[in-house]
Amino acid sequence: MPNVMIRAKNNGKLLFYIAKKDQEDEIESVETDTEEAWGGVVNLTDGSQYYIDPISPKPKFPTTLRFKRV
């Protein structure tokens, strides 16, 4: 269950950063992404998947969240 910092990149995409692993990847898609809720299965550009219970309302980025590996 890594702690992940998510921040908005200049190109509008979200950056998925795991400090412990120095991993920086863009988020390709999020299962639920509405004004009311954000979360579910998150697909990264490198092909890996992470899961977080949907948070409502949608959190403000940057923020640190705890994900599960799928």
């Binding site: 910092m5 921040r7 950063y17 400090a19 940057p62 923020t63 640190t64």
Partner: peptide, 9 residues
């Protein structure tokens, strides 16, 4: 970068 990320958050 660690402290910069922290300040951003």
């Amino acid at each position: 970068n660690y402290i910069s990320r922290h300040m951003e958050e």
